[in-house]
């Protein structure tokens, strides 16, 4: 079961309300988010607008505001919110016994359009 999941380390490595990056050789970099509420999400680190690094945005609730032109992106679905249209792939993620796991196939499979 753990085999499908890629262990990316301890939850303490990401402070609440912040994000960190995970480069993947041969595929797009991933941004791993931790909300104030200690929910964890992973998205491809590219804004659907003009590829801004979402990991560097301000996180509020379950939303990240892109640092380049302030689109609001849902951490859960990768979808742009409000008037803006676009979607960035999200990577299934789970937390177990204080460690974070990403779905292996999604880590390598993903590629932002």
């Amino acid at each position: 079961m753990i085999g499908e999941w890629l262990d990316i380390g301890k939850v303490e490595q990401i402070a609440p309300g912040t994000a960190r990056t995970l480069p993947v050789r041969g595929a797009d970099e991933i941004a791993v988010f931790r909300t104030q509420n200690n929910e964890f999400y992973a998205l491809v680190n590219k804004c659907p607008h003009k590829q801004g690094p979402l990991s560097q945005g301000i996180i509020h609730g379950n939303v990240v505001t892109c640092p380049l032109h302030s689109w609001n992106i849902s951490l859960q679905t990768g979808e742009a919110l409000g008037e803006d249209k676009g979607c960035v792939p999200s990577i299934p993620m789970r937390v177990d016994a204080g460690r974070m796991y990403l779905l292996r196939s999604a880590v390598v499979g993903q590629k932002a359009a």
Binding site: G9, R20, T21, R25, I30, G109
Partner: peptide
């Protein structure tokens, strides 16, 4: 931590198992 990656993923091949 603001300047460092969390980790780095290097697939040995593109097979998901061998990562």
């Amino acid at each position: 931590e603001l300047h460092q990656h969390l980790a780095e993923v290097r697939p040995l091949t593109m097979e998901p198992q061998a990562m």
